[in-house]
Write a protein that binds this DNA or RNA. Sequence first.
DNA 1: TGATTATACGACACATTGTAAATTTAGTCT
DNA 2: AGACTAAATTTACAATGTGTCGTATAATCA
Lengths: 194, 194
Amino acid sequence: MNNKKQDTDPRILRTRQLIRDAFVELLQERDVEKISVNRLAERATINRVTFYLHYRDIPDMLEKMADNMIEDISIVLDQSTESQRSDEETNWRSMENVLKYIAENANFYKTILSSRRVPIFRDRLLMLLTDKIVSALENKGSESNIIKAGIKKDVLIWYDSAALIGTIVAWLQNDMPYTPSFLAKQFSLLHHRV
Amino acid sequence: MNNKKQDTDPRILRTRQLIRDAFVELLQERDVEKISVNRLAERATINRVTFYLHYRDIPDMLEKMADNMIEDISIVLDQSTESQRSDEETNWRSMENVLKYIAENANFYKTILSSRRVPIFRDRLLMLLTDKIVSALENKGSESNIIKAGIKKDVLIWYDSAALIGTIVAWLQNDMPYTPSFLAKQFSLLHHRV
DNA sequence: TGATTATACGACACATTGTAAATTTAGTCT
DNA sequence: AGACTAAATTTACAATGTGTCGTATAATCA
């Protein structure tokens, strides 16, 4: 793999870290439309051309940053489900661990997730959570009370995954007034109200 | 009021309509980052300078379009609650009417609501629905089963408002596989599962 | 009809973009 | 340590986009 060099060369890591930090800084100051490669490079104390060595343009940069975010959170999820049985208890633990991880990196996640003009991070997280909910539902099977109550499965999936991501964002925007553990428990109550 | 002229002069109305249509068209073709005032004016068959007579820049245009959208939907909401008080039946009718209205303008709403890079319309709609849910909850009072079950009120509001908007967007993105009436009924089932 | 004003047109200074050299600097490897 | 490799810098360039001038034209309204 050529990735090895990309992931170990300290010059590359340093530059990417500088770009990432500068982007988060600028995003706290202004809308994303006003963030030019010019300003980004200036703030990151790198040359403008160097930016183009790493990313095609700013949307490309956002995508790759979102990829990394999903990778990080997936690792947390995988660690939570090591034991492999996908019951209620496991799902609740997973959510708790994800929230804890987000809380530990609150500055980063608050900025990128709650920034109104950069929905890509929210979208990616939504996809991840949707997958999680789908597989949880499939394990539950068709005898679920929800389905019996006349609620369509896809509507339920749309509803709950959007609810999860929206609540997490609101929680961050309000500076995390509840502990990760408490919020995870709230999700558990809300999600299984039937 | 000076607004009168702004709202009646056919030249102004025509120009704004041209801009709006051109924007929706372009948004279906490319990401919003690639929509310049240049291209927008060209597609709208107006002079570029004319755009600046109406809007400061593209974000300003988006805001004003979102204002109009909220205005339109608020009218639908007000019509639904004209005579009646705010009981369950009324809330359900309101939602049904909003969904019907959106379905009638599906092309416009699908484009602007489901476009990933233009979250302002979704955000505004979220705020509107949040208000609606808050007032519905307040009418219900504190004897609500939900509150008794240990679910925090603000968490519930975050959860359900995000769920509503997310489901509507998913419904549009999937080309409205259910009728407005059916989906409103699904909301009713989901929202009152306790 | 005459006054008003939205729009068109051409032009301007300036910023941003994306790319292409050649060169310097820093990290890696033996 | 010295040689090799590649990342980063520097400078330059054409193309595009931005926001704002006058001034002229044409549609609207009273």
